[in-house]
Nucleic acid binder design. Structure first.
Lengths: 182, 182
DNA sequence: ACCTGAACACCGTTCAAGT
DNA sequence: ACCTGAACACCGTTCAAGT
C-alpha cells in the first residue's frame, strides 16, 4: 500500500469513528469523506460497502471485548450477579454508536456480512461466560449461546432506538437472566 | 373532504399497505404515489410525515389487536401457555411488514409519535393479559407492562432484522416468559 | 380546495481524467 | 497505483401554476 493511500485510509477510519459516534451508523459517508479531506471516490475505493468501514472501525474493539469478558468472569459474587453484569457489559459493547445494536445483532447470524468475524469474537466471549455458568450447573438445559446474544441484543436494540437510559434497561436484562437461570 | 380528495386518500392508503407489505416500512413514497396515480405533492398533503401514512394503514389493525387479546385470554391451559401464546400473537401483530417491530416498539414510549394512539391500544391489550396473570398470582412482584412490551418487541425486532423463522423465535419468548413467571 | 409536476436538496455510487 | 471531482440515479420535500 502506497504511503498516501495508507494515510488516507487511516484518516477515513479515524474520522468515521468520530462521525458515527456523533450521528450514528446511518451518518452520511459524504460527510466522512469531506471531513477526512478526500474525494468520495477514495472512500469507496477503500470501503466499497458501508459495512467495510464499520469493520475497520471495529478493529480495536475486539481486544476490548475479550478483556471485558475476562473481567466479567473474574467477578466475585453469585452466578446471577455475574450473568447480569456480563449482560450490562455486553449491551455497552454493542451500543457504542446509534444503530450498532441492530447492525451487530443481525450480522451475528449472517455469514455474508463483512463484520462477521468481529461478531464471532463477541459470540465467543459470550460463550465463555455461558459455558462457565453451565459448568456450575445453574443454567437451564437447553440454553443456546446464539439465542442469548439475540435476546440481549434485542434489549440493546430497543434501548438504542427508544433512547432508554440504563435504569430502564437493567430490569429487562434481569428478566432475561432469570429466564435462563434455574 | 372533497370527493376526489377522499378517493385519492383511500387509494394512497390502500396502495401503501400493499407496498409496505412487499418492501417494508422503508419503501419509497415516490413508488406509493406513482402506483396510486397521484403526484408526490398529493401524498404529502395528506400525509406530511411517513408516520402519518403508517398511522392510516394501522386503522383497521386496532380491532384485530383487541380481538387477538380476547382470544388469548380465553385460552384453556396453563398460565405459561397462555402467556407464551399471547407473546407469539403479539410478535405476529407487530410484524406485519419489515421495520414494523422496531417502529412500533420505539413509538410506544414516545408521546410525539403519530402512531402513539395505535400503540396504546396494543399496550392496553398486553396489560389485560398481564393483569389477568397477576390476579392469578403467578407473576413476579415488579413486572411492568411497558417493560414486557419492550422485551417482546425486542425479540420481534431481532427476528425481523435477522429474518429468523418462528422456530427460532419461540425459545426466546420462552426465556422471557420464564423470566416473568414465578 | 385540491392536484400536478417541475424543481431543489441530499446522498450514494461510478468513472473518466489526472498525478 | 491512487486520487479527484464531475456526473448520474434515487428519493424526500416544496411550491408555483393550474383546475
Amino acid at each position: 500500500m502506497r504511503a498516501d493511500a495508507r494515510r488516507n485510509y487511516d484518516r477515513i477510519v479515524e474520522v468515521a469513528r468520530e462521525v458515527f459516534r456523533e450521528q450514528g451508523y446511518d451518518a452520511s459517508l459524504d460527510e466522512v469523506a469531506k471531513r477526512a479531506g478526500v474525494g468520495p471516490g477514495t472512500l469507496y475505493r477503500h470501503f466499497p460497502k458501508r459495512e467495510n468501514l464499520l469493520d475497520a472501525i471495529m478493529q480495536s474493539w475486539v481486544a476490548k471485548v475479550s478483556e471485558t469478558a475476562d473481567k466479567a468472569l473474574a467477578h466475585e459474587g453469585s452466578d446471577r450477579e455475574l450473568l447480569l453484569n456480563w449482560f450490562q457489559e455486553y449491551v455497552g459493547l454493542i451500543s457504542q454508536h446509534r444503530g450498532g445494536p441492530a447492525k451487530i445483532t443481525s450480522a451475528m447470524g449472517d455469514p455474508a456480512s463483512p463484520i462477521m468475524t468481529k461478531c464471532q469474537v463477541l459470540a465467543q466471549a459470550n460463550e465463555r461466560v455461558i459455558d462457565r455458568l453451565r459448568e456450575d450447573g445453574c443454567l437451564r438445559a437447553d440454553v443456546d449461546t446464539l439465542q442469548v446474544c439475540r435476546l440481549v441484543g434485542g434489549v440493546a436494540t430497543v434501548a438504542d432506538q427508544g433512547e432508554l437510559d440504563p435504569e430502564a434497561v437493567r430490569p429487562m436484562l434481569e428478566v432475561v437472566a432469570d429466564g435462563l437461570l434455574k
